[in-house]
Design a protein around this nucleic acid. Structure first.
Lengths: 233, 233
DNA sequence: GAATATTTATGAATTATTTCATGTTTTTTA
DNA sequence: TAAAAAACATGAAATAATTCATAAATATTC
């Protein structure tokens, strides 16, 4: 799972996860967490976690972007979400039957800290403030997932692709202009439509002056129009 | 919100929620929870919680079935899920910005216990075991939501309706033969398609001997075939 | 740097889905 | 119980989406 990634000590003093968790746990507790976690670099296309394996760690992505990928029995890929950094992943699935229900795959070079679940659990058990915060965090993931669901399950392709573009721009790349780390095929796996439909729609949006689409380079030109398309489904 | 429902004391001694939570809290703590919670009956179509209102309570449904309904800006209804009983609802949204992001509406007469969130939060804060359990519970809701999402966003109508039928049979009615509390229109709001598409598909499934569909009475005849349709999307 | 593979793109044919028009049945209301 | 409303059902027309065929552009490999 860790393939060729090389171990390099990261600078924890600037880590936002450390900053967050140290509000709730002591220095010696953090030291334990630090000693038991793995700091790793992943190259593009490497698996950070693999669907079906034992969920022994949470992943804190400090740098880079990744996709959450679910592979069906028939081998079809479904992208559940794309995440930027920094972000904590795994909270939602980890306390289940202990198996990762999807894969996390780097879509560009990433720096990741794998945090031992059992250690974290032992802190949660002792620390009400921390567990409330994690419940809050998980609630928010859940809420995002519901809105993602509403977008994909109850809109048609124009609206879904508008939503994907808005999401990428606002959340993943945080700019109206970005260079995609995803192929058209992957965008289709995210938007829940065919590859050609993504291409057709991009071409149409481009012609209508809503976006500028040149290969991997995307720019959102008419944000208002995109919002309208999203709203109308 | 509580409309005409009349207050009737339920028999807490047989309540599974009491049984669950008393593993983690003391008798006097339960007494506080009991004193601050409201025991209510809701008739079919009554709102148990309303989207947009302050999320002050969790709902424990001890009897009856309900739908989680999201209403869009344009007035379109989307059914996020249907729940049977007993079931605890609200955990996923409650710790957010304190607003219910969807409505809970009774689809048949229900008995519901509304549990004060702030009291429960104070228990979570003090009680690691309880918060771990709630995290686990929320994780499971999250996982279910992901699979629901996969079904609806990445399958076509045949597969989606097969999934809805399987879900209703297995989880909501717990029998291959059941009498629907939902109209065709509501089924469409759940499956993410048009009302006519539900009717057409039911007719087709009936002709193919997969289900028996007579108005509100549904029977799953060929479970294997339904699974296959679900799998192939 | 040429050859090969992959990705992107386009348009047409096929299939899926929605919408519309209409009628029947069931449920609700007075 | 009759009248009105809502739900269910059917088929046809219109629209949306997928699949297929083909080609150009871009990346990758040797």
């Amino acid at each position: 799972m860790l393939t060729t990634s090389n171990h390099t000590p990261f600078d924890c003093s600037i880590c936002v996860f450390k900053h967050f968790i140290c509000q709730y746990i002591s220095a010696s507790e953090f030291e334990l967490l630090y000693q038991t976690s793995q700091q790793l670099k992943f190259r593009k296309n490497e698996y950070i976690m693999k669907q079906g394996t034992k969920a022994s760690h949470m992943a804190f992505i400090s740098k880079g972007r990744a996709k959450m990928n679910y592979e069906t029995d028939s081998g079809k890929n479904i992208i559940l979400t794309i995440t930027g950094s920094p972000n904590l992943i795994g909270a939602g699935i980890i306390l289940n039957e202990g198996v990762n229900i999807f894969s996390i795959i780097a879509i560009e070079d990433c720096e990741v800290c794998l945090i031992d679940i059992d250690i974290l659990k032992s802190f949660i058990e002792k620390n009400g403030q921390l567990s409330l915060k994690l419940l809050e965090f998980l609630s928010n993931m859940f809420k995002d997932s519901i809105f993602n669901f509403i977008s994909l399950a109850h809109k048609q392709v124009n609206g879904r692709i508008a939503d994907v573009l808005i999401y990428l721009s606002k959340t993943v790349y945080q700019s109206p202009k970005f260079t995609l780390n995803l192929s058209r095929k992957e965008l289709a796996e995210f938007a829940g439509c065919s590859q050609e439909n993504v291409i057709h729609t991009f071409t149409k949006f481009d012609k209508d002056g809503i976006i500028r689409s040149e290969g991997k380079n995307i720019e959102i030109v008419d944000q208002e129009m995109l919002n309208t398309i999203s709203r109308n489904g």
